[in-house]
Design a protein around this nucleic acid. Structure first.
Lengths: 235, 235
DNA sequence: GACTTTCGTTTTGGATACAATCTACATTGG
DNA sequence: CCAATGTAGATTGTATCCAAAACGAAAGTC
């Protein structure tokens, strides 16, 4: 038998799988900000022991998605309005930078990849709950793929981390108001500048896009007092 | 007996202690970029089991200080010149922002705290190896304390993470060249602007400070080919 | 001689076990 | 009736154990 080993896909690591799924569930609001995550419960859900669950959670805590209170477990990070504004302030900086770099370093494949995501978003039924959910996932993917074209791993890492931190709130707001039109239009604009390699425009538009998202969020979630559970927060 | 429990110091979490010490050792170059960290070895060093060690390492990996390759363990992140430049590009953005916010939101205590650090740095003997080490630690602390005055946890988190990513290289360069004068002067300048609450100046100076550090690094480490071990890297 | 293949060792990933701590609730005393 | 106390159960943090994968060196093959 010849060297099969070289071709075999490397064995998956449970904590990675848990990390991914847990992140997805937090971003999509299955676990709400402030909610405490029980290790045993999650271990049972994923049919693993608590060890990989704990590892996944400690990573999510470093990402800023969870908070850790010793001996009291991990909870979904709960942001107040001021913190949301803070994160968006950072996103505006980083994403302008990332957008500019993306436009400068993009390859033909990148344009195709991003275009594909936009097309998929166009095809969705924004009225159905399912369509909304898919739109939101594709929305996240759009930005990730766009920035990935910069070929700058650290830029992408920071941008993704910041985005993930506020993503639950973005999705909450979008689900409530159901307005995707402005975002759609801005995505198209960004894409067009990206396609023609206009770095300054992409940067400027990305920053604006952040700013507008922050504005919608502020308005949409501003009135409602914390709709969230009662966990007193640190970090 | 009255409620003693409330006064007892909350029980320490081993993985936190390991995280802290491990980070310090990585930043100070005890574990060099590219080096693989054995779980058993570290567990023995800290007299704990491998579990808290793994947890600490998974956090450090999320911070960008370590890289994780499934089933092959964690290694100290090895950056090439391009990545170092990338990180400094981000730092210039973030730290200008952070510096500005710090100047705007600083309290009297913050000024005292930062001044104290600068004084300690002044008092050190920069020739001795020990003095250098202390200077480098205080240098890190200076920036952390300065930015902390912004009262913006997310800003501080991102700034610290980016700084930690390149800190081993900063310390390596500084240890080799032994030139602290420019940094000292810039710290003083930043502090003075910080003291008088000149947000624009602090922002501008922080950005410049980053730029200069990056420049020194590029020159100091540019010539030497990777002095590091042989680990082939991903992420 | 270079390239596999084998096999033993090392090291990792994960499960289980157990002690320490926290939480909730019932009880007591004022 | 309310606050403080005590206690049982739930939950976390860590140690220990085991199977599987990676590594390295020796032996075999063309």
């Amino acid at each position: 038998m010849e060297t099969l080993a070289k071709w075999r896909t490397p064995p998956p690591v449970l904590s990675d799988a848990v990390y991914q799924d847990l992140l997805e569930r937090i971003l999509s609001g299955v676990y709400k900000p402030g909610e405490v995550l029980r290790q045993e419960e999650l271990a049972a859900r994923y049919l693993v022991s608590r060890v990989p669950v704990r590892e996944a959670m400690s990573r999510l805590a470093s990402d800023g998605v969870l908070v850790f209170r010793p001996r009291r477990g991990y909870a979904v990070k709960l942001l107040d309005a001021r913190e949301i504004e803070e994160v968006f302030g950072l996103r505006m900086l980083i994403e302008e930078h990332a957008g500019r770099l993306a436009a400068q370093h993009r390859q033909p494949d990148d344009i195709r990849g991003v275009a594909e995501i936009l097309d998929k978003m166009d095809a969705l039924d924004r009225q159905s709950a399912n369509g909304m959910r898919e739109w939101l996932e594709l929305n996240r993917k759009f930005h990730a793929e766009l920035f990935a074209a910069s070929r700058r791993a650290h830029v992408c890492r920071v941008a993704a981390s910041l985005r993930d931190t506020v993503e639950p709130y973005i999705r909450l707001e979008a689900t409530i108001t159901g307005t995707f039109d402005q975002a759609d239009a801005e995505h198209r604009e960004i894409f067009e500048a990206f396609q023609r390699g206009d770095a300054d425009a992409v940067g400027r538009l990305c920053r604006l896009h952040c700013e507008h998202t922050a504005g919608r969020l502020k308005q949409g979630l501003g009135q409602r007092d914390q709709p969230i559970s009662r966990t007193p927060e640190g970090t």
